[in-house]
Design a protein around this nucleic acid. Structure first.
Length: 272
DNA sequence: CGTGGCTCCTGTTAGC
DNA sequence: TGCTAACAGGAGCCAC
């Protein structure tokens, strides 16, 4: 569920408040995607230095090691001075001197993984193959983006989702960025001209930035760690709008399946 | 090595 | 109203 904007909104909603906290207790619920990788008790007493983000992963840096956190499809975080007793879908809870951090994740596609450092095998395995950060100053270059796309024969939508060229673009924002750039989602990535790749590059940045500003999308259950819902979906151009008139030309929005995920597009505004 | 398909899990919704 | 099947924002893994 959460794509880059939702993860970034989550990070901003608690990073400053948890920095400097001391870990008092770590409680795991039902198994998540991978085992934690250390004894929960081993983390007691460590200090939380900062919360960073890489792609859709949150990196909680400790004075020794770090926790890699992924929200999967249905995960959300809460951080507060105190919280009501955990429910059936709360599978990770970190009690600290400054508050309680809790992961709520019904589908349990999310993960919390301890790594001793960023060069640790566990972090390399999870973060090593990730593409560039689209919103990082100077990191996402239109020319390099075009060159990377020329190596790929898969449909452009699926190349965006794969996350090894550029990170953070999930199912909602892939459809939205392709609409904004006027590109058909089924077009082979290597068939994009330089100008069209540049247009897509700009669209990705614009869509993600706008979504962060709006507090992310809240289709079902996303909210920030402060409990705020996002508003992006209220003005999605194509996502979730199958059969409804395109906001630009009025043509009914189409939906197709690509790699078991639904894609939304306008056949008039996205001719090729 | 790039690509496409499958998989994990639970909850909600569309359709009969 | 009730049952069932399809689908949901991710992404690692495996066979080609």
């Amino acid at each position: 569920m959460p794509e880059l904007p939702e993860v970034e909104v989550t990070r901003r909603s608690f990073a400053d408040r948890i920095a400097g906290a001391r870990v008092q207790h770590l409680q795991m619920g039902k198994p998540l995607r991978w085992p934690l990788g250390c004894e929960p008790a081993d983390l007691v007493g460590r200090e939380i230095l900062s919360v960073a983000r890489r792609g859709k992963y949150l990196l909680i840096h400790l004075d020794q090691g770090l926790l890699l956190l992924h929200l999967g499809m249905s995960g959300s975080l809460q951080f507060a001075q105190s919280l009501p007793p955990p429910g059936t879908h709360d599978h990770f809870e970190l009690r600290t001197s400054l508050g309680v951090l809790r992961l709520h994740d019904p589908r349990r596609f999310g993960a919390v993984v301890y790594a001793s450092s960023l060069d640790d095998a566990r972090s390399i395995k999870l973060l090593g193959g990730l593409g560039v950060e689209p919103l990082e100053e100077g990191a996402f270059d239109p020319g390099a983006f075009h060159r990377a796309l020329r190596q790929r024969r898969a449909p452009i939508k699926q190349v965006l989702l794969a996350g090894d060229v550029v990170v953070g673009v999930g199912n909602i924002y892939a459809s939205e960025a392709l609409f904004m750039a006027g590109i058909r989602p089924t077009l082979r990535a290597d068939r994009l001209s330089g100008p069209r790749a540049a247009r897509l590059h700009a669209a990705i940045v614009a869509v993600l930035q706008r979504a962060v500003t709006l507090g992310g999308s809240t289709l079902r259950d996303f909210s920030s760690a402060e409990g705020q819902s996002g508003y992006f979906q209220l003005d999605a151009m194509v996502y979730g709008r199958q059969g409804l008139p395109c906001r630009v030309c009025g043509e009914p929005v189409k939906t197709i399946r690509q790699g078991q995920r639904s894609t939304f597009f306008c056949s008039v505004c996205q001719k090729a």
